[in-house]
Design a binder for these strands. Structure first.
Length: 218
DNA sequence: GACCAGGCACATC
DNA sequence: GATGTGCATGGT
């Protein structure tokens, strides 16, 4: 298994797609909310849900935490799985209100490992959501591994079929400087790659990474 | 009308 | 430990 040339891949993606300006959120709380709402969901649907919250003046911790679950669900309905996600948002606001005085800054002041463990202990926050919050909201140098990342690395023969989240994250951590702007841009570029080329059904002609792996294409 | 989307928890084997 | 399933809306 040849290890992926992660620096060259980054250059190729940046050349192809340019800066992605992630995360599209106005506040750190909005980024956290978006990270939970986007689970298995297209971003356009998350935008509708966040717009509803904003128009209801509920995009702040006191309002989010106080709203009845069915009201929360009604606001975020366009994001899908709304009953599940309403409970997940509530679990997150409960953590903030209960352990951090309702202040995101206090949560985000934790060291990266502790922040990650704290987030993972919240019902409904798994590895990708925790790392997205750590990187894009807390601005800690944590690499976000998502389905696109696993797919393009597998397609090109750079990781084993059964490679785990932790193994893939370790690849990036080992080969790249721990830089928030770099990790931010890199993950966003991988999503751009996934949306444009590395689809579930193979469609890899003209892929900007063609020729870089052992088995580019399907 | 299937398939997919910036996952996760839970049940079952 | 691995695999399957429910959650649910909206775009292609």
């Amino acid at each position: 298994m040849r290890r992926p040339p992660l620096r060259a891949i980054y250059r190729a993606l940046f050349y192809e797609f340019g800066p992605q300006n992630w995360w599209p959120g106005r506040t750190r709380l909005e980024i956290c909310v978006g990270a939970i709402l986007t689970q298995n969901t297209a971003w356009t649907n998350v935008e509708r849900a966040i717009r509803n919250l904003r128009e209801a003046r509920a995009l702040n911790l006191p309002a989010l935490h106080a709203a009845p679950l069915n009201q929360l669900g009604a606001w975020i309905r366009p994001a899908g799985c709304f009953n599940v996600k309403a409970r997940r948002l509530r679990a997150f606001t409960t953590l903030l209100a209960g352990q951090f005085g309702g202040r995101l800054e206090k949560l985000f002041a934790l060291p990266a490992a502790e922040l990650r463990a704290t987030l993972l202990a919240v019902h409904g926050i798994g590895p990708e959501t925790a790392d997205s919050i750590a990187l894009y909201a807390a601005e800690q140098p944590v690499f976000v591994v998502d389905a696109y990342t696993q797919r393009f690395l597998r397609r090109h023969g750079w990781i084993a079929e059964q490679a785990t989240y932790a193994e893939i994250a370790a690849l990036f951590a080992a080969q790249l400087p721990a830089s928030v702007p770099l990790f931010n841009e890199y993950h966003a570029l991988i999503v751009a790659l996934g949306k444009n080329f590395c689809r579930p059904r193979p469609l890899c002609d003209k892929c900007p990474l063609a020729g870089m792996g052992l088995k580019p294409g399907p």
